[in-house]
Write a protein that binds this DNA or RNA. Structure first.
Length: 485
RNA sequence: GGCGCAUUCGUCUAGCGGCCUAGGACGUGGCCCUCUCAAGGCCAAGAUCACGGGUUCGAAUCCCGUAUGCGCUACCA
């Protein structure tokens, strides 16, 4: 029987996770689900100073929103908890002390001042920076302010196999005696991470590429501890458009921001899964279930990927179009409630939104757009305002347009069935009678009725707006044109 | 500086020695559809596979070097 796969996502609550971080969670989860393994979430809250309030909640909410469920971890518990490192301090301390007792580690009393001086001297002498092992053989005991360091061999090499990149070798002499236990009693990432991965029976460590350089240290720790190291897979990074590490200055980076901007979770799952992984040479649109089934570490690409917002927008449009009308309305209601002008009566009329959205549906790239005053507000407000210059047809000019609207108005007023088909049946022949192209008649009406030059199809839009609003707005347009002349 | 990782169209990628005069997608341009905007359909431009050496009958694919980019080099993760 092959060993059950157990992977983990181990975020530290020092901020809201950005898309690269979430992508790491996603790949771990996909791998677990692809092979019937377990996905574990562990909170690495060992940096007390940098912990951000609300970060844990945000991390968990982000996962839930994406439909990434975990088998063990916060809220659900599990056999190997607790899943917060801050609650496991006694474990790390005991193990670190044991390492000292066995001669694999030692207490170091060096002050931060001495360390700083040492670094400065090394830099001045163009020597590789690193702890000079001052306390290594002093046989020091515990003391306030002391840390525990690992005795790293000063010769030989350490090699590990990366599932994505193959064998990677480091020279031991270039590694210094890293701190395992900090003076505040908290473990460093290295110690806690290695201990917990072992105690939680993690089989595969899939983490970001930036951890490659510390992996040999982790291997040494596993060896000192007598633990068998897991398999490693270092994932490519996600870069900004300028090819530098994704950060705030590139605009939106946290998953929460994308959520707020109206991207669908299915979009984010699909898009992020394709950043560094592919199923084949053509399949792009896949459901979460399909990806879970098809995922494999072998198909992860080692190269860093630039986050392409253009493609994200396209994909979000694809998923929005796949939504049923009712699903779309459900998603869009809260956005409208929040963003429509105050003058629009609350609560927003759901039945009316249900009529508007089919017209907007295929025109949306994000949910947020549907709430932009520029594209939908005219459906909801009583009065609209727009630049009078938009009104007249170029060839007709203000006068010609005015005449046209004056001819059209009474016919619209006389129309009893104010729905798309009768409207078209009325206006299209009318344009011909007047010797005008359809667009010359439709465009000014479009603007009169919506205040915009780009809208959903005219007749459907007029039907939804209703006869009263349309007539009123066309009259208003006539006044505007008369004032202009 | 040292060490490590990476290098295929602007971007995401396919490619694991011959199927590649390099395929798909986003974006871009054009055409079609059309009342505008979208959506959709079709077509096009776009990569001498970073560069230079090898290995081989044959290399985008294997090896070496160079260049470039990125990462690490904390009592941060």
């Amino acid at each position: 029987m092959t060993e059950e796969v157990r992977v983990r996502y181990a975020p530290s609550p020092t901020g809201f996770p950005h898309v690269g971080n979430i992508r790491t969670a996603l790949f771990n989860w996909l791998f677990a689900r692809s092979c019937g393994g377990k996905f574990i979430v562990r909170i690495e809250d060992t940096d007390v100073a940098r912990t951000v309030p609300g970060a844990v909640e945000n991390i968990l909410d982000s996962l839930k929103w994406l439909g990434i469920d975990w088998d063990e971890g916060p809220e659900v518990g599990g056999d190997y908890g607790p899943y917060f490192q801050s609650q496991r301090l006694d474990i790390y301390q005991a193990i670190a002390k044991d390492l000292v007792a066995k001669g694999y580690a030692y207490y170091c009393h060096c002050s931060s001042e001495r360390l700083a001086e040492m670094r400065a001297a090394q830099e001045a002498a163009h020597l590789p920076p690193g702890y000079d092992r001052h306390c290594r053989d002093l046989g020091l005991g515990d003391a306030p302010g002391a840390v525990i360091r690992l005795k790293v061999p000063d010769s030989g090499t350490t090699t590990f196999h990366d599932l994505i990149r193959g064998d990677i070798t480091f020279e031991n002499r270039l590694l210094d005696d890293m701190v395992l236990l900090k003076s505040d009693g908290y473990p460093t990432y290295h110690l806690a991470n290695v201990i917990d991965d072992h105690l939680m029976h993690i089989t595969h460590v899939m983490r970001a590429e930036e951890w490659i350089s510390s992996t040999p240290r982790h291997i040494m720790l596993y060896n000192a501890l007598g633990f068998e190291p897991p398999k490693f897979a270092h994932m490519p990074m996600i870069l900004g458009p300028d090819h530098s590490k994704l950060s705030k200055r590139h605009g939106s980076v946290s998953l929460t921001e994308y959520r707020e901007q109206g991207y669908l979770p299915e979009t984010m799952i699909n898009f992020l899964s394709l950043l560094g992984w592919s199923y084949d040479d053509k399949t792009e649109i896949m459901t979460s279930e399909e990806i879970q089934q098809r995922f494999s570490i072998e198909r992860i690409n080692p190269t860093s990927a630039v986050f392409d917002k253009n493609k994200l927008d396209w994909m979000n449009g694809v998923y929005i179009r796949q939504l049923s009308e009712d699903e779309l309305v459900d998603k869009v209601m809260p956005v409208l409630e929040k963003n429509l002008p105050e003058s629009v009566k609350r609560p927003i009329d759901r039945d009316y939104v249900r009529k508007v959205m089919p017209l907007m549906h295929e025109r949306l790239k994000t949910l947020q757009e549907s709430a932009l005053p520029e594209t939908t507000w005219f459906f909801f407000t009583d009065d609209i305002s727009y630049d009078a210059k938009l009104l007249p047809d170029k060839k007709l000019g203000p006068e010609g347009t005015l005449d046209m609207l004056k001819t059209v108005l009474p016919k619209l007023e006389a129309l009893e069935d104010f729905t798309a088909e009768p409207l078209e049946a009325l206006l299209r022949p009318l344009a011909a009678e007047l010797g005008l192209k359809a667009g010359q008649v439709f465009a000014p009406i479009r603007t009169a009725v919506s205040g915009l030059t780009a809208t959903p199809p005219l007749f459907g839009m007029m039907e939804v707006l209703g006869k009263d609003k349309c007539i009123r707005r066309i009259r208003e347009a006539i006044k505007i044109l008369e004032n202009e002349l």
